[in-house]
Amino acid sequence: MTGVIELRGVSKVYGSGAAEVHALRDIDLTVGTGELVAVMGPSGSGKSTLLTIAGSLEDPSDGEVLIDGLLLSAMSRNDRARLRRRSIGYVFQDFNLLAGLTAAENVTLPLELDGIGSKAARVLGLQALVALGLDGHADRFPDELSGGERQRVAIARALVGDRHVLLADEPTGALDSANGEAVMRLLRSAAEGGVAGIIVTHDAQLASWADRVVFLRDGRIVDQTARPASAESLLVPGPSS
């Protein structure tokens, strides 16, 4: 099946000789339109590496990555940069906001890098900020925002405009449960709008928002959950305490 994001036989090795580290081994993963996939695993399992490779920030040692059916390895550096500006939204674990730009400017960063004028970009940026409940903070600088607010700005940046690939690393780490749930609802609705997303997390509650949870251990996919059938009630027979 072709999906928006495809990893085919992706492996990643760091270092060489005795210090070799196999971060990923032979990963096959496909994410379709409107699908949210969560990647769970202990630290060192390679989940962050999977995300950077999917996001064209790193090259795999082996295997192929396709976004929208296009081979990343066949793209020039500029083409990949364009992909990141227009199609991919990336949420880093430590938000990575530019301290010199306001929240709104941070959100519209990929748009402005793409050449969209600052006025038009600001309109789109404000839309994204409103969706995340930050419309009052548009012109504040990151060092004037709380950790949770900064995380939401980072998420807004990943959703601004009409990008359709979302790659998020612990997107709710700094948020309390109310804000965290709001963010996940937003991501779900983005998925319903057609965004294909990979969310890396160690939080099972967060992962439970996904359509599919993939389990990573020692660089391999060892298991994944089935798509939940829609159920009317909470009363599903299962192991009880």
Binding site: A204, A207, W209, V213, F215, R217, T225, P228, S233
Partner: peptide, 23 residues
């Protein structure tokens, strides 16, 4: 590890179900 993973998957599936309802 496999035993744990089976259970883990099962619980996560249950959580997915719960979350769906909550959603």
């Amino acid at each position: 590890h496999e035993v744990l993973q089976v259970h883990r998957r099962h619980f996560v599936e249950a959580m997915q179900h719960c979350t769906q309802i909550k959603a």
